[in-house]
Nucleic acid binder design. Sequence first.
RNA 1: GGGCCUGUAGCUCAAUUGGUUAGAGCAGAGCGCUCAUAACGCUUUGGUUGGGGGUUCGAGUCCCUCCGGGCCUACCA
Length: 569
Amino acid sequence: MARILITSALPYINGIKHLGNLVGSQLPADLFARYMRGRGNEVLFLCATDEHGTPAELAAAKAGKPVAEYCAELHEVQADIARRFGLSFDHFGRSSSPQNHRLTQHFAGVLAENGLIREVSEKQVYSRADGRFLPDRYIEGTCPNCGYDKARGDQCENCTKQLDPTDLIDPRSAISGSTDLEVRETKHLYLRQSALRDDLDKWIDTKTDWPILTTSIARKWLHDGDGLQDRGITRDLDWGIPVRKGDQDWPGMEGKVFYVWFDAPIEYIACAAEWAEATGNDWERWWRTDKGAGDVRYVQFMGKDNVPFHTLSFPTTLLGSGEPWKMVDHLKSFNYLNYDGGQFSTSQGRGVFMDQALDILPADYWRWWLLSHAPESSDSEFTWENFQQSVNKDLADVLGNFVSRITKFCRSKFGETVPDGGAYGAQEETLLSELTRRIRAYEGHMDAMEVRKSAQELRAIWVAGNEYLQSAAPWSTIKEDPDRAAMQVRLGLNLIRLYAVLSAPFIPAASAAMLGAMNTQDTGWPDDVADALSTLPAGHAFTVPDVLFAKITDEQREDWENRFSGVRS
RNA sequence: GGGCCUGUAGCUCAAUUGGUUAGAGCAGAGCGCUCAUAACGCUUUGGUUGGGGGUUCGAGUCCCUCCGGGCCUACCA
């Protein structure tokens, strides 16, 4: 039994995530976690809300709440939605936890001891009206290049020219609109990533099986221009982890907090500590190679925008500490999911958000479509028509109808009990060998985290059931050879259980419904397909389940299409 | 501006990393079946692999060029 540590990129706290966020990290991570558990491995699947930074403070201010209260509320909202989506985290933590405070300060302390932190004095724009320093992109003004009057301090969206905030003509705060700005001197800590450049480079070179997307982004940052640059890891904010050197004060850094991208990945570890504290488990055997984590396989899931921080900054933190922390073994990254010809947009409310998705359909519909269309090789696109067609065909017609036809046929001919009699013939042997071949292929794709291919193979496994029924035709054989029909039906009912087990990572609720109808809790993985198909013996009682997947009608599709095209109300 | 990714059938995607005649699913067409959510099965029509040039015995795959889409570019996260 292997031990698998799985983390999903941390969803940011300032609101409910859209389906594009979901499919890029949490959902495929959940797929993998459920699969690995199903195969009998020991899995620790962690996720948390990422709660620090300017956007959290501003969102709280907008909501008229203290930021700590706002974050606590939004954490619960996200935790609830995650639960309803079937995301099977072993722990859903918070980057603002005491554990993360301690650990983040610890890392900063040892990095400083190891000479990997330097202090930099720099000039930043301060807004007196807002009472805060402004990140570059929170400063607006007129572009000196093209005259666009809503250019941001980092870049002009109109002419794409990169800017410094001081380049802007008539600069103003993007938060309040105030022009009462000044440039102030402030001191910050920088993580000396450049010192570990060669180590990181060699480390990335060993990762030959990572997605090209992952390694190419890492290499770009390592080699571009002067190579990997040091990175500021502190900010002048109120909300965050106070800058301390371990448990000591950090002279000159009073009132400052760590940068959210420094503390967020550390929460992967702190989250395990939160989990351990809540459950009485030991977290170090998952994270410390000197305390039992040597045999752990660690897999991270994230959207492509997160890659530099996970391939460079966080590894710098871990390597630079000189302590025996578990490093990531596989980093699965995803492109973006677009919505009907454009991007999902949180600010414009464009697209479907997780809560809305669950309001209109059960999680399994979304899980199946999103995973079977995961943006692995390039950005992919959500359209309502494609969603309706895929879901109706795959879930309702192929899988749902299979369950329906075999259970109803059995009920009408043999009653709601697995029928006795008959023995396998050539058709059954053919089915067994096809299923064996396909299940092994499915395992291979799942092991490799090839999400789309896994979904394709699973669907083919469902189709095999319909093909079998068509060729076996129990509705005909029952007339001449009732024993043979009984065997065929018994096999069909066992296929339902098999499908429930294989499909659970994709569609856990439907899987549970299938197991419930088959009146079994045997979720044993089909290492041997013939054995797996004799799990439900003759005489075993079952029930005919409700329709597993109702079809999406044209009226529904049109309604939703209109409802989600505009601004979220 | 620079870097990276990407363009394959009407749609969504494959193609064992340069190797036979580019494959699946959906949609379309035809046939079969009648247990089933008008479901299922079988057969079948669709491709100048964005355009052009090159390397090679051989190119969807490598090189050059042009066109289109996307991402990143270090103080949003």
